[in-house]
Design a protein around this nucleic acid. Sequence first.
DNA 1: GTTATTAGTTAACAAAAGGTTACCGGTTAC
DNA 2: GTAACCGGTAACCTTTTGTTAACTAATAAC
Lengths: 117, 117
Amino acid sequence: MERSDKQQPTCEQELAAIRDSLEVLGGKWKLRIMRQLNNHIDEKNTFKKIQREVEGISAKMLSKELHELEINLLVTRTVMSTRPVTVNYAITEYGLSVFPVTETLVDWGLNHRQKIK
Amino acid sequence: MERSDKQQPTCEQELAAIRDSLEVLGGKWKLRIMRQLNNHIDEKNTFKKIQREVEGISAKMLSKELHELEINLLVTRTVMSTRPVTVNYAITEYGLSVFPVTETLVDWGLNHRQKIK
DNA sequence: GTTATTAGTTAACAAAAGGTTACCGGTTAC
DNA sequence: GTAACCGGTAACCTTTTGTTAACTAATAAC
C-alpha cells in the first residue's frame, strides 16, 4: 500500500455499489425531487409546493420518496411553526454530490438517443 | 451560439435523458452482463457461458436482457457454425461507453455506504 | 433409441413499484 | 358550524419486473 490507502473494491463490491446508487437515486421520482429542490434552493420548499411543481406525483409517493431521501442524508425536513404548520425540505451539502452523477447520466442518455435514432 | 453548436438541453430533456439511461442500464442484470462481457473480452462468450458466470440469472432473463442490449447497440450477437450451433455475444465499441457511467455510480455508491454507515 | 448439449421460448406465478381514492388531525377564515 | 389549507397515512388496485419450471429444435455421442 505505497501509493494509496484505498483498497481496490472487488467486482462484487462494485456491483453492490452500483445497486446502492440505483436504489438511492433510481425510480421514477427521486432525481426529479432533487432537481426541483436544487432549482429553488433559496426558497422555502414545502410539501405542497414540491407536489405542485413535480408534475404528476401523488402525496403518497412524495411522502415516501422524501422520507427515503432524508434517511439517506440527501435532504433535511424541518417543521416550521407557521399556521397552519408547514414543513420545509432542503437539499443538504452532501445531497449536492448527486448532481455530478446525474450529469453523467444526462450526457450518456442524450448521446444514446442520438445514437439509436 | 458563439462558443458551441450544442443546444443546452431543457430540464425536460435532461429528465428524459436520465430516464433513457436508467432504462437502458438499469434493472437487475444489464450491467452485470456488460461487466462479464468486458472482463472476458478476448474470449468467446456464448449464451451458456454467460449464464454460468452471471450468477443466478435464468435463461429467460438472459435472453431478454441480451436482446435489449443488442437493440441498443451495446452488444453484438453472432451465430457460429459450430456443432451444436453456439451464439457469441460481444461488447461493441460503443458499448464501452457505459463504463465511465458505471464508474461514477460505483464511486458514488461506495462513498455513500461510508457516509450512512 | 436414449441421453446430452446449445440456445433459446412459453406459461404461470410472485414480488416490487407505482397509482387512486378516501380519510385523519390541526388550524384558520367565513 | 362548515369549508378550506397543510402534511400527511391507509387500503386497495394495476403495472412492471423478475422467477420457476416445463418444453422445443437441432445436433451429436453412446
